[in-house]
Design a protein around this nucleic acid. Structure first.
Length: 160
DNA sequence: GCCAACGTTGGC
DNA sequence: GCCAACGTTGGC
């Protein structure tokens, strides 16, 4: 099992949106970064725990616990000329972009602010904490993942 | 709104 | 293969 963090701009898609989605699940579509794609396509497996992070707000924070809810499959938005993330270079026979589905497990007892995460020496090395990290789908070391839940006031319930 | 850091594109 | 231009991300 691997542990992950995904970022979302709440104005585009928030934790509340995920909780309100049918079956609390959504296809994580629109990612157009090869590193992020490779994680989704090759490494993310159903049941893997995922931290859900709100970016581009005054207090960026991890807000929810989610999980991978499907195997990876081609992102349909790459083939849709009307979609903002349409990729004219992608062919159905040879998809370029892949996604997994994400399911909300539970909201954290409280958001864990980026500022707080930066104060934790044992979290050094998390990609999120790199200066100007831009990777929107990233692996998290298991110990760091549990530490974030701990900071939120959770036990590791449902994760380990 | 600013701006640094990247990733991608495309001319050469 | 180089590298400038460009677009995007995301903290502040």
């Amino acid at each position: 099992m691997s542990f992950w963090l995904i970022k979302s701009r709440p104005s585009a898609f928030s934790w509340a949106d995920l909780e309100a989605a049918p079956a609390r699940t959504t296809a994580w579509a629109g990612v157009r970064n090869y590193q992020a794609r490779n994680f989704m396509r090759d490494r993310m497996k159903p049941g893997d725990p995922v931290l859900f992070y709100h970016s581009q707000i005054p207090k960026p924070a991890v807000i929810g616990l989610a999980e991978v809810a499907s195997e990876s499959y081609p992102d349909p938005t790459q083939f849709d000329p009307g979609h903002r993330r349409y990729d004219p270079t992608a062919a159905v026979a040879e998809p370029r972009w892949y996604l997994v589905e994400i399911r909300a497990v539970r909201q954290l007892e409280r958001p864990v602010l980026l500022r707080e995460l930066r104060e934790q020496p044992e979290l050094e090395g998390m990609d999120l904490l790199r200066q100007r990290s831009r990777l929107s789908v990233q692996p998290v070391p298991p110990a760091a993942f549990l530490r974030v839940l701990q900071l939120a006031g959770s036990d590791a319930g449902g994760v380990s």
